[in-house]
Amino acid sequence: MKRFFKINRKIRNTFHKRWMLLSLIVVIAMPIVLGVGLYLKSAMLLEQTSLIKLLFSKEWKPMQGLFGLWPFIVSSLWVTILALLIAGPICLLAAIYMTQYTKKYFLRMMHPVIDILAGIPSVVYGVWGVIFVVPLVSNHLAPFFNTQSSGYSILTGAIVLAVMIIPFILNILIEVFRNIPDQLTEASLSLGATHWETVKHVLVRKAFPGIVSAFGLGISRAFGETIAVLMVVGNVTQIPKGIFQPGYPLPALIANNYGEMLSIPLYDSALMLSALVLFVVVLLFNFASRMAIIKLERHT
């Protein structure tokens, strides 16, 4: 009886190990399945037109069978880069201030606040964008720069997006700066450097790999963000010539059109291709920022 019990335990041990392995495989397989699926779906279009032509053509005329993705790619790039330009410096300065200049309890207090910001559903940010940022851009920012804007523009999308990615970038940066030992600060100060010189020459340099990864992950998130951007960016198929013009980023294209107009041949396939582009870009960005960290860490 005792012996039987022992064997039973061992079988269970093996069984549970397999079960956990299976879960792991599911997790690993998911992105691969997703990527292959998207490729198979977009293959129909790719057989007809070359990938380069699809990516860089300006003509998006589904009725005529023209599916140039360039306007959407450009819009996505504009919105993402602009959002990072707004959010990056803010996060960097805020993280340095919180970790270097404030009392400890302040940081403890800020952590849940940042988490709350990160947890707000993106549609809420979208509504805030429509109610607040759109009028701000059309009534104040655009006239200030001597142009006209409906308010539904690249800039509006970028501002909303910046606010959305701030908590993500900030959380990583706080961790990065907190992990720098105080003794490094002390070493720099003891050599006669001011606090600011220490931040500029020592801490930022030490944190550089972390900053790159935080910004990289912020970009990945911004690039794929859909609903909040879609609500404020205007969704006009064109290559935006300025930040006060409307644009039409890739995620918005998919969200707005999938499920409709599928009677048009290859439309479905074109949307799948844009999803694939999105997928690959985000993947590449994640990969690149990780590689950058590994390389940089070796050099400092």
Partner: peptide, 13 residues
């Protein structure tokens, strides 16, 4: 004053 700490903390350069 020069400071020497418990573990060396070379500046990242």
């Amino acid at each position: 004053m020069g400071l020497l700490s418990q573990r060396p903390y070379p500046l990242p350069m």
